[in-house]
Computed example of a mutant assay.
Amino acid sequence: MTDCRTRYPLLLIHGLNCRDDWIFPYWGRVADILREHGATVYLSGQDAWGSVPGNARALLRRAEDILTETGSEKLNLLAHSKGGLEARYLISTLGFAPKAASLTTICTPHHGSRAAAEWLARERVCRIAGRGLEGFWRARGDRDPDFPAAVSALTPEAMARFNEENPDSPLVYYQSWGARLDGAGWDPMDRLQLRLTRSDAPTDGLVSPDSAAWGRWRGTLAGVSHQDAAGGRRRKRPGFDAGEFYIRLVQELAEMGF
């Protein structure tokens, strides 16, 4: 069996519009698969629609609890989508750099989304959608959902400021992957997301590969959607199996001494 035991525990950090205690796991079977191969894996537990600073503060509490529980000096942070921005804020603004061995981001909009700016321009639609989503997730455990803050943080202008204010730490190893849907995608959800993000094309349905590049760029997962890149839809696309991808990723971290 492939050995995924790393020097430091793994903290999987989810993105928007889901919680780790939701009935449909954000990471699908990824966490269980990694544990089956020897990895020590924890989930992040931040809000589905929290702001980047608010969720990063929740991550800090979670990370410190894990370090205390395990006795480890550091963690490996593995983040998908907006979770990667919260991890970067945790490292750079909240001072977690000495305790972060690595940060791997998957489909994170490091350079922003033009589609996010376009949605914010639809003020009435955003207001109605935001109230609905905040209420839905507050009833399911969100402590401080903030739809406007979460979406406005993803615009190219906001991310330019964020990147200036959150420079990389020389203490942390950074790497990233992006994804790209080819053609119209496999299913109606893929096609809808591609239509909504046409201004950012090509994309994984939500984030472009160009925006996902940060630190050591590992490349683009071709023909893979935003959700499939995290394993949340529990399906195999031609040429991509989320469980196998994360096994290889974690095994590589282990070989690097992380």
Rank of each mutant, 00 (worst) to 15 (best):
A117Y: 00
N76G: 08
E164C: 09
C18D: 09
D65T: 13
W217M: 04
N55S: 10
F147V: 07
A242H: 10
L221A: 02
S169H: 11
F162L: 10
E86Y: 01
G71Y: 01
I66W: 01
P109G: 11
D65Y: 03
L253V: 00
Q46V: 01
S208G: 11
F245V: 05
F258Q: 13
S113Y: 04
A184W: 00
G15H: 04
Q227V: 09
A63S: 15
S102D: 09
Q193K: 05
A87H: 10
D146V: 04
V224G: 02
T105V: 03
L171M: 13
G54V: 04
P202K: 12
R218N: 14
L60A: 14
A158V: 03
V41D: 12
L77P: 13
D32V: 07
D204T: 02
L221V: 02
R124M: 08
D142F: 03
A100F: 01
K236H: 08
A229E: 02
T2L: 05
A158L: 06
R248E: 15
V172D: 11
S208R: 09
N55T: 01
G231T: 11
R127K: 11
S208H: 06
R62Y: 00
L253D: 09
L221I: 03
Y173L: 13
V52I: 15
D146N: 15
D182C: 11
R216G: 03
R19G: 05
A153S: 15
L206Y: 00
A213G: 01
P53I: 01
L85E: 13
A39D: 10
L67P: 03
V250G: 13
S102P: 06
T6M: 12
L11K: 09
E255L: 13
A139G: 14
Q251V: 01
Y8N: 15
R61N: 13
G243I: 02
F245Q: 08
P109K: 14
D168C: 14
R114C: 04
L196G: 07
G215H: 06
Y42K: 09
S211M: 05
G84K: 11
D210C: 03
A129D: 06
F240D: 05
R88M: 10
G232V: 10
F96Y: 12
W22D: 15
D47L: 04
